[in-house]
Design a protein around this nucleic acid. Structure first.
Lengths: 184, 184
DNA sequence: TATAAAAGTATCGACTCGATACCGATAAAA
DNA sequence: TTTTATCGGTATCGAGTCGATACTTTTATA
């Protein structure tokens, strides 16, 4: 009877531990992940469908989870001008405070306590596995705005730029945000 | 607003992907993990409470999940001689066949396609994070029998040994199995 | 202008999972 | 030896996950 490679086993075990850790403050793991995504995503990517693609869930699950978060006043929905199908999501002040008590901080502390070299090895390996897995599944990589081929730095510099795809002006903070349209 | 370290972020992302992957054949992620644990655990560790400790779930959840697996004829329960509270779990033939189609094999393939050096870096880092996290949480490490301080190799050799804690004879295969009593 | 595609919602069903209460069996203490 | 505590496991509740399916409204395309 075949078994999994040691590394796979470690990933599985850690994955479960992470899921277990994520039940703090009456929120479910998925709800925490949505909050974290909203903190990282740029303004074009704070939509239910971007959440759906990023977390690889169904539209239905995301819709319900967002309703739960809205009821708890952690996330607010706003209409989008120009397309009445769409919806923009925003973290409320309470949502941002909630993230200050993120149960994932325990894992983060463990990661940060590693030596730099080991941490770099680890993240390199994880990146490789993640992109391989996404490729096998046909998923997208969801990179950060600044690394996208539509990112056009302004000649003036100082972090200002433009998105050639959406034809929008980007501030310095935008460049570090996750974008649904990345690379595409 | 603080964000997570890149490595933490990768772990979180991969963790979600792994959970998503694990919905094949009508089984839930937890059910798959129980099957995998039963494949790895030695005969003293194939009990509901060992599953509970290993997967860090509540007794109730494990009890229900085991019922679901029993209904599907993937796991069988047997009474334990000498203690009528206890229960021993065993994979049925169908359960073993199910493991041949483990959805985790996709992750395993991604892991195995890495270079050896990178794989070793990765597993080293994961081991560090996992044990750190377990330590913070007060959880046990659950090592393999052969590495336990109660493991006593027989002078005759050939992988035969004894467990000084449980006072039981151990075959070569036992040495590689996960044990609840490990180290303690 | 049909028609297709996209963005979200609604509903169902099986299951997760923490919490709590519970029962019988065994171990420890009086 | 008789209480009493602890252990292994089950039963039940409630909020939520999550795939599946069907549906509405809105926008894009042929």
């Amino acid at each position: 009877m075949l078994t999994l490679a040691p590394t796979t086993h470690l990933l599985e075990r850690l994955s479960r531990l992470i899921q277990n850790e994520a039940h703090a403050h009456g929120l479910k793991p998925v709800q925490w992940e949505i909050l974290r995504f909203l903190r990282l995503a740029n303004r074009f990517s704070r939509t239910p469908s971007a959440v759906t693609a990023y977390l690889n869930l169904t539209k239905g699950t995301v819709s319900q989870s967002l309703n739960a978060l809205e009821t708890k006043k952690l996330v607010a929905k706003e209409p989008v001008a120009g397309d009445r199908r769409r919806l923009t999501l925003a973290l409320t002040a309470a949502g941002q405070e909630m993230l200050a008590d993120d149960p994932m901080d325990a894992l983060d502390a463990a990661v940060r306590s590693m030596e730099t070299a080991r941490d770099e090895d680890l993240s390199g390996g994880l990146r490789a596995v993640l992109s391989d897995l996404l490729r096998r599944r046909g998923g997208r990589a969801f990179g950060v705005c600044r690394t996208c081929r539509h990112y056009r730095p302004e000649p003036g510099g100082a972090g200002r730029a433009r998105c050639a795809l959406l034809n929008e002006t980007l501030g310095p903070a935008d460049g570090e945000a996750i974008c649904v349209e990345h690379d595409g």
